[in-house]
Design a protein around this nucleic acid. Structure first.
Lengths: 154, 154
DNA sequence: ATACCTGCAAAGGGTTTGCATCAGG
DNA sequence: CCTGATGCAAACCCTTTGCAGGTAT
């Protein structure tokens, strides 16, 4: 296969993973990986497929699912579950936490400094590669709305 | 409905939630809630249904799904996704983190002290109710096995 | 050359929905 | 009473699977 696809930093990591595990370097795998890493935040399968088609690189759903599973095993992608909907997201050098408002469903990404450092001492025998933190609660908008409602009642 | 079901501490919280949201106090809701809170760790829907039948309290799948959604909205239950399988877990006063081994799939629950305190200052405008942390990596067993394999190669 | 991978379409299975019936307030 | 909740079964939809053909090594 052509080489320009395998030149991005993230492609090199996949390339090494495939080699180590005696798996094939197919153009689909690198195209899907690079598409995922061009997406900011999380996405669902349909969105990914649509993006691939827009870039004139059609792949089948079967290949998307196969490849996503492979990338999850390679620790390059994570799988989220937001209100019964599957979403995926790049996770190499992208340790984002998610704030999920239980009133309106809004999802906000944030970076919490020192989170890795807080976790590490407690899992000495476990070799951490990446993590996902989901924080549930009420966002400022919904909280203010609820406060206003209470005021009116009085 | 009988009152003995609504006496446990967790039932009282549900009772209040139902009242606030003008929803009905049905025996199913309290039976399911108490069953979930008697289960240590996470479970899937089939297991929950089986437990309910063992206790001679049959409920339909539809009611299980309805009630679980209600309990999630009430912040009494959380929804996990482990390798494409849905699992649920009580989450009131139960802030467990999960270590997920990406080699063997084993899931270990741990409590990380100070995690809530690490998060809180970074989400000032967000009113936290609970959180879930998933830590991905390699467990000690798989790590040792890999090390032994490397030794043999030499 | 030969596994492995992809694409297609059909099967699968967990979750949701529609409707009749029941019961909480 | 009346509206919301339950139970049942069918529908739904996302994901997986089987197989034929293609391609990386």
């Amino acid at each position: 296969m052509e080489n320009n696809l395998t030149e991005s930093p993230i492609s090199k990591i996949l390339k090494e993973y495939l080699k180590e595990n005696k798996l094939r370097c197919t153009p689909e795998r690198f195209k899907i990986l690079n598409m995922i890493y061009s997406i900011d935040g999380s996405f669902d399968i349909d969105t990914l497929l649509r993006h691939m088609e827009e870039k004139k690189f059609r792949v089948s759903r079967a290949t998307i699912y196969n490849t996503i599973t492979l990338l999850i095993n390679a620790n390059l992608v994570t799988h989220h579950l937001f209100g019964n909907r599957s979403r995926y997201e790049k996770c190499f050098n992208n340790e984002k936490s998610h704030l999920i408002c239980t009133k309106c469903g809004r999802i906000t990404e944030i970076t919490i400094p020192n989170l890795r450092e807080t976790i590490t001492p407690d899992i000495k025998k476990f070799h951490l590669t990446h993590y996902s933190l989901y924080v549930y609660g009420v966002c400022s908008k919904c909280h203010q709305a609820a406060r206003r409602r209470r005021q009116r009642k009085k």
